[in-house]
Design a protein around this nucleic acid. Structure first.
Length: 571
RNA sequence: CGGGGUGUAGCGCAGCUUGGUUAGCGCGCCUGCUUUGGGAGCAGGAGGCCGGUGGUUCAAAUCCACUCACCCCGACCA
């Protein structure tokens, strides 16, 4: 591709609204342009990268036996009403009406649609299992779009949905997808973790997230460096360093203290001069039926709603103003003499602790000398908090490590949640109608682009891995006004084309420095430079983007080097 | 949704407090000459209803009200 016939517009200056390096680089190198908050255009250069990512995803999905198709982005509301997600999904879904007032949405995901298609087209176990995928635009009206295409409102995703007649086939496909995603991320040279994860709104019972490590990531993960365990921060079970230790202090008498205005742990801790880990935090949760549950936590711990929901088995909501009766502000709640209609569950973190402080269930009063089981009952003990530094791996009891990252892929075992709701059934061997057993597997294609930049850049710009670089080689003629250099570089360019080298030929009549800077910013892996040394000694200069190393080679050698370099650096 | 901030040339910004020339500067863009191995120099030039609407005033980029867009922080913690 000749530079002058292509379309590249790099920016010398930093755009004003960048928040992280990768976003700034995507804008400056002209990969993307912002159209509105969370909405971006992929410019020709970015589009080439996107296509290459898509192709890797496509190749690996095909290799794993999945079949590509394309569903509409716009979907009728009735499918979503049938699955009951029309109401569950909330404001994150873009909704619209057609001219005759029929409701539609711009698909944030495609479970409903694919399940409907399976309902239409799959009748017998003989047609199972099957794994269908598409590479599609998705729409999600994010609370707060940010970091460019890392968290956009319109983005490109590969989503696959599997249908099988039994759990074994689902497991097989799930494992294949796990391998498939690992291969994709390996081909992109990314550092990642596959962690156990929560299933969220999509529903289902078992899932893994593929997380790319990055300090700017919005997801937290924990892992154990010795046994290889890793999990989403929210999900992670853990062992406690002090779990077994029993406080052997003498239990002191329960007494009431006047603690005006201490509605949170911090102010209470300061007021009473008691460390937060000796205070019982009492949090009230309400389920859909209005039943209230109290969760007891150590004061320095945070409530993990996901774990609570899993434990209780229902969607829960936090009460944040006052108790159900409305006459006690929430900061003065405690387990002692709590309303008996409220079930009390307690986090392991307060087990074995003596002489604690807790709310007195009386406005502006707390209790000191609170002891279990002397002063209050616990219906059940459980894990309702997040792991913290110092907590141990459940499997091998070594200390857990924490990392931040970007979620790039998510695979789920859905089971029959959608097929049941949407009556998607097949006739099994035994002649009975059964709902499809489903799985779903998503990977963020456009997000990968940003995530790769996030992991692979230096002070000069992007450092693309060979597999998705917009071009492999940047052919740079040092001075287009020099007749001999001009002629030579034209010849070299056609020679590269004949050798099917993915080359960008920068034949602009600008100074060499401009071409070098642009090439580095855009992140093309190899520069081939035609200068005086070629005219005089027939030597080209080859410079790698990765480490800046330079070689002086003849044309023949250069062509060979480029081919070898590509093979060596692509998995 | 709550709090804060910003809208002036394609991009980055100054001017606004204290209203009053032809609204500036840097980058980029166009023309010409020189230059040509890491974002060149000189000369000339194009490009703005100062986010929008309404008001105050003899006079508004500047003051007031409303509105729109964009950005940041938070929206789970007793």
């Amino acid at each position: 591709m000749r530079y002058s016939e292509f379309f590249i517009n790099t920016l010398k200056e930093e755009p004003s609204d960048w928040q992280i390096e990768s976003y700034s680089l995507c804008l400056r190198s002209g990969l993307i342009r912002k159209i509105a908050s969370g909405i971006y255009a992929f410019m020709p250069l970015g589009f080439r990268v996107l296509k290459k990512i898509e192709n890797i995803v496509r190749q690996e999905m095909d290799r794993a036996g999945a079949i590509e198709m394309l569903m509409p982005a716009m979907q009728p509301a009735d499918l979503w009403i049938k699955s009951e997600r029309w109401f569950e999904y909330g404001p994150e879904m873009f909704r619209l009406k057609d001219r005759s007032e029929r409701s539609f949405c711009l698909g944030p995901t495609h479970e409903e649609l694919i399940t409907y298609l399976a309902f239409l087209d799959i009748k017998s176990y003989k047609e199972l299992p099957v794994n269908l995928y598409q590479i599609q635009v998705k729409f999600r009206d994010e609370i707060r779009p940010r970091y460019g295409i890392l968290r956009a409102r319109e983005f490109i995703m590969k989503d696959a949905y599997s249908f099988s007649a039994n759990e074994e086939d689902l497991d097989t496909i799930y494992n294949k997808m796990y391998e498939c995603y690992s291969r994709i991320l390996d081909r992109l040279n990314l550092k990642y973790f596959a962690v156990e994860a929560d299933t969220g709104l999509i529903g289902g019972k078992y899932s893994h997230e593929f997380i790319i490590l990055s300090n700017n990531g919005e997801d937290q993960l924990v892992y154990c460096p010795s046994c290889g365990f890793s999990a989403n921060y929210e999900m992670a079970g853990f062992a406690r360093a002090d779990e077994k230790s029993q406080d052997s202090s003498v239990e002191i008498k329960l007494s009431e203290v006047f603690t005006p205005g201490t509605t949170n742990i911090k102010s209470l801790s300061e007021f009473l001069k008691v460390p937060a880990d000796l205070i019982i935090k009492t949090m009230l949760l309400k389920d859909g039926q209005g039943t209230t549950i109290a969760v007891l936590l150590r004061g320095d711990k945070e409530l993990n709603l996901v774990k609570c929901e899993k434990f209780i088995g229902k969607k829960l909501e936090l009460l944040s103003e006052s108790d159900p009766a409305g006459n006690l502000s929430i900061g003065f709640l405690g387990p002692v003499n709590l309303d008996s209609s409220i079930a009390v569950v307690a986090d392991y973190s307060i087990k074995g602790k003596k002489n604690l402080v807790a709310g007195a269930n009386k406005q502006d009063y707390h209790l000191t000398g609170v002891n279990y089981p002397r002063d209050f009952k616990v219906f059940q003990w459980g894990d309702f908090s997040f792991p913290a530094i110092g907590d141990l791996c459940m499997n091998c009891k070594n200390e857990l490590k924490f990392e931040k990252g970007i979620e790039i892929g998510h695979i789920f075992k859905l089971g029959t949640r959608y097929s049941e709701k949407m009556d998607a059934m097949f006739l099994d061997k035994d002649g009975k109608l059964k709902p499809f057993i489903m799985g779903c597997y998503g990977i963020g294609v456009s997000r990968i682009m940003a995530a790769v930049v996030e992991q692979l850049f230096d002070e000069k710009g992007i450092v693309w891995p060979i597999s998705i670089a917009p071009f492999l080689v940047n052919l740079i003629a040092i001075n287009m006004e020099d007749e001999s250099i001009f002629k030579a570089s034209e010849d070299i360019y056609s020679c590269m084309l004949n050798n099917k080298i993915d080359v960008l030929y920068d034949e602009r009549n600008v100074r060499a420095g401009v071409k070098f800077k642009d090439s580095d910013l855009i992140g093309i892996p190899l520069k081939v430079i035609v200068g005086k040394n070629y005219i005089e000694n027939k030597k080209l200069e080859i410079e790698t983007r990765k480490d800046g190393s330079k070689l002086s080679l003849s044309l023949e050698e250069a062509l060979q080097f480029i081919k070898d370099y590509k093979i060596k650096n692509i998995i």
